[in-house]
Amino acid sequence: MDTTSAPLLVGGPPPGPAGLTAVGVSAWFGDNYVLDRIDLEMAPAQVTALIGPSGCGKSTFLRILNRMHELVASASLGGEVLLDGRDIYAEGTRSQDVRKRVGMVFQKPNPFPALSIRDNVLSGLKLARIKTTDADALVEQSLTRAGLWREVRDRLDDAGGALSGGQQQRLCIARSLAVGPNVLLMDEPCSALDPTSTRRIEETIAEIGHQITVVIVTHNMQQAQRVSDRCAFFLAGENEPGRIVEQGTTDVMFTSPSDPRTLDYVSGRFG
């Protein structure tokens, strides 16, 4: 079976990578001002890494990109997030429709432990009310893209919770990919994993990064260099909101950034 072309999804997002652009995005939790006027273009079919010390708003920004920020009762925001030129917060735009197109992989793997591997992959479709004409083909394709198919193809009926931590994270990636998103957000997906599992997930990012748009938060500077096309460096001063100090191609950001704070951070002098 050819697993490189997507099986038909009925009611799913339009196929292909999408551009994602933040325009003047600011964020609050109650009176706490956490992000200040973020402008960032995340190009289609590229990997954008969000780097910077803990507490500078990277994960908050990531959650704004698929409308998870609004799930916190005290949260508010300003600015626009444009998905292929259309504001995902525009009146009448449903958050569920946004999340079909902009998937999320979290820091800690969160498969449904009692569901089988196969049902874990397909669970996102049920939640999003998307149908497929060939479930078996979709399961194989999604697990292949996530770099997990060869390891689990003979035990698809085993519980997802029986997998190792690294395998569970790749299963979560497969679950997200099964919906056919245009963008995949990843919040420190390797932070709790061993080096071997980290390498496999980085290989997965390299594979899918040319097929969809990927935005990843990472504190691992070597990882940012390995997997990303572009980087955005976030920084927050004491009692100040997070801002983007500098953004650009990964090569330039790590070899000849324009701001000395960027060089200090990527060189490990702070953070």
Rank of each mutant, 00 (worst) to 15 (best):
D2K: 02
P7Q: 10
V10W: 00
G16Q: 05
L20K: 10
T21S: 11
W28M: 10
D31T: 15
I38N: 06
I38Y: 04
V47H: 04
V47S: 05
L50E: 03
P53A: 13
C56A: 04
G57C: 06
G57P: 07
K58R: 09
T60R: 04
T60S: 15
E70V: 12
S76W: 01
L77H: 15
L77E: 00
G78E: 14
G79Q: 04
G79D: 05
G85F: 14
I88G: 02
R94C: 02
R101V: 01
K108H: 15
P111G: 11
F112E: 02
P113S: 08
S116A: 06
N120Q: 13
S123H: 10
L143S: 06
R145C: 09
A146V: 11
D154I: 02
D158Y: 12
A162N: 09
G165N: 13
Q167V: 03
Q169L: 05
L171N: 08
C172M: 05
I173C: 10
A178F: 06
N182Y: 01
L185C: 06
L185E: 02
S191L: 11
A192D: 08
L193E: 07
D194G: 14
T196S: 08
S197T: 07
H210L: 08
T213I: 03
V214H: 01
I216R: 02
Q222G: 15
Q223T: 00
A224G: 01
A224S: 04
S228A: 15
E240C: 09
E240A: 15
G242M: 09
G242N: 06
V245E: 13
E246A: 11
D251K: 05
P257W: 01
P257M: 10
R269T: 05
G271D: 11
